[in-house]
Computed example of a mutant assay.
Amino acid sequence: MKLVIITAIKEFENDIKLQLKEADVKTFSFRDVTGYRDSTEDAVESNWFSSEMNQTESILFYAFVKKENVDMLFELIDNFNQQQESLSQIHVAVINIEKSN
């Protein structure tokens, strides 16, 4: 069993749900979160709004996933990210679970 954590902008919520379903992840939890990005080191011309901290409506998913389904989920998310024209992507991480009840 692995713990999978997924973060993305709120607009990707339904896409993530579809990817979880396609990877045979039947149970998961999610919640709305506020994402922050420190843009103080960006070049002035790429930081149009001159704000140092940018907030984004984001979403956080977490699920206990069978080991055999993790690679498929990563592949689905990787394919999705490659097709995006925007700078935003879905971020995913996996954590080994040594013991659980």
Rank of each mutant, 00 (worst) to 15 (best):
N81W: 09
Q82W: 02
Q82S: 04
L76K: 15
N96H: 15
N79M: 02
F80Y: 13
F61R: 01
V94Y: 14
N81R: 14
N81G: 12
F30Y: 15
M1K: 11
L60Q: 12
M53I: 13
R31K: 02
N14C: 10
K21R: 15
H91A: 01
E52I: 06
N96Q: 10
F74D: 09
Y62E: 14
S46M: 08
K26D: 06
M53Q: 12
E41V: 07
V65E: 08
A93V: 09
I97V: 08
A23K: 02
K10S: 00
H91R: 01
M1P: 02
L60W: 09
V94D: 15
E57A: 08
I59E: 00
K21I: 14
E13S: 03
I59Y: 01
D32Q: 04
I16N: 00
E75S: 11
N69F: 14
V33P: 03
N54K: 07
T27D: 08
R37I: 15
A63P: 05
E85P: 00
L20T: 05
F74Q: 13
A93L: 11
K99L: 12
N54G: 03
F80K: 04
S46Y: 14
A8S: 12
S39I: 12
L76Q: 04
N101D: 03
M72E: 12
F80C: 04
S29Y: 04
D71V: 04
D15Q: 04
K67I: 11
A93I: 08
N69W: 08
Q82E: 06
G35S: 10
I59R: 00
A93G: 08
Q19Y: 02
M1I: 03
